[in-house]
Design a protein around this nucleic acid. Structure first.
Lengths: 141, 141
DNA sequence: TATTGTTATACTCTATAACTATA
DNA sequence: TATAGTTATAGAGTATAACAATA
C-alpha cells in the first residue's frame, strides 16, 4: 500500500470529519436527514430513477428506500411514478421543489471549511487540477 | 465567496461521499456504528474524557452519549470512570481492546479510494504539502 | 423461479424534556 | 441556581425476513 496516498487520504478524512457536524446541522435546518439528502443528490430532473437503483447507489437495503421515499414524497420533493416498461418498478422523479432543495444541498456540500477557504489562489488551482485529473482517470468515483 | 475554494471542496466532498458506503461497510464489519467509531476516534489512551466533552466534540445531545457509551462499554472498548475532581462527571477511558479497535479505525479512514490511490508520487506530495499547510494554519480543524 | 417494492421487527442514532446528584 | 449524566419518548436510518405483484 502506498503510504503517501494513505497520508493524503487521511488528511482529507480529517478535514471531512471535522466538517460533518456543520453539514449535518445545515441539512437539519433544511429539514433533511443525511440519507434523504444523499437520495436527493442522486436524482436529476427529468430522469426517473428506479427505487432499486437508488438502493444500489446508496448501498442500503431496498426496504429502507421505501421509508426514505415516503418522507421525501411527504415533503413534496419527489413523486413515485410507475415504470412504463416493468410494472414491478416504481421510479422516483424530482419535483420543482425537490430540484430547488437539491441546489441548496450542492451549496452545503461545496462550502469549504476554514483550512481550505484560507488557501492561496495558486494552491487551490494546484489541488483542483490534481483532483480533477484523479476523478477523470478513475471511473466510478 | 471564493469560487475556487468551493470548487476544491466540492471535489473533496464528491470523493468522500463516494467512499461513504465502503467506510460504513468496514465499520459494520468491525461491529461499530458510525457514531461509536467517531467517539472512539476522539478518545486517547490514558486520557479520560468527560462524557460532556465528547458530546460537545461530536456535536450531539448529551443524552445520546449515554447510549453510545453503554454500547462501547458492552463491547469492552471503553470504561466509565468517575472524575476525582467533580463527582457529577463521568469520564470515558479506552481499554486496550478499545485502543486496538481505534487503530483499525485509523486504517479504515486512511485507506484511499481508487482516484487517490492511482495518483503519481509527485502529485500526492504536492497535495499532501498543501493540505498539511492548510491544517497547520487553521486552528480547530 | 427471480425480482421489485412493501411490511414487520429489532436495533441504533437523534433531539427534547424531565429527573438525580452534585456543584 | 446551574451543570453532568440518566431515563423516557418519538422520529429516522439500518438490516433481515416474509409477502404480493410481476417478470
Amino acid at each position: 500500500m502506498e503510504p503517501l496516498a494513505r497520508e493524503v487520504w487521511g488528511l482529507i478524512s480529517q478535514l471531512w470529519l471535522a466538517e460533518r457536524p456543520r453539514i449535518n446541522d445545515e441539512l437539519a435546518a433544511l429539514g433533511l436527514h443525511p440519507m434523504q439528502a444523499l437520495a436527493l443528490r442522486h436524482l436529476e430532473q427529468d430522469r426517473p430513477e428506479p427505487m432499486r437503483a437508488l438502493a444500489d447507489t446508496l448501498r442500503c437495503d431496498a426496504s429502507n428506500i421505501t421509508g426514505i421515499a415516503d418522507r421525501l414524497e411527504a415533503a413534496g420533493y419527489v413523486e413515485r411514478r410507475p415504470s412504463p416498461e416493468d410494472r414491478r418498478v416504481k421510479t422516483l422523479v424530482l419535483t420543482d421543489s425537490g430540484a430547488r432543495a437539491r441546489a441548496k444541498l450542492a451549496e452545503i456540500w461545496t462550502t469549504p471549511p476554514p483550512p481550505i477557504a484560507a488557501l492561496a489562489e495558486d494552491d487551490l488551482e494546484t489541488v483542483r487540477d490534481i483532483l480533477q485529473r484523479a476523478l477523470a482517470a478513475s471511473p466510478r468515483a
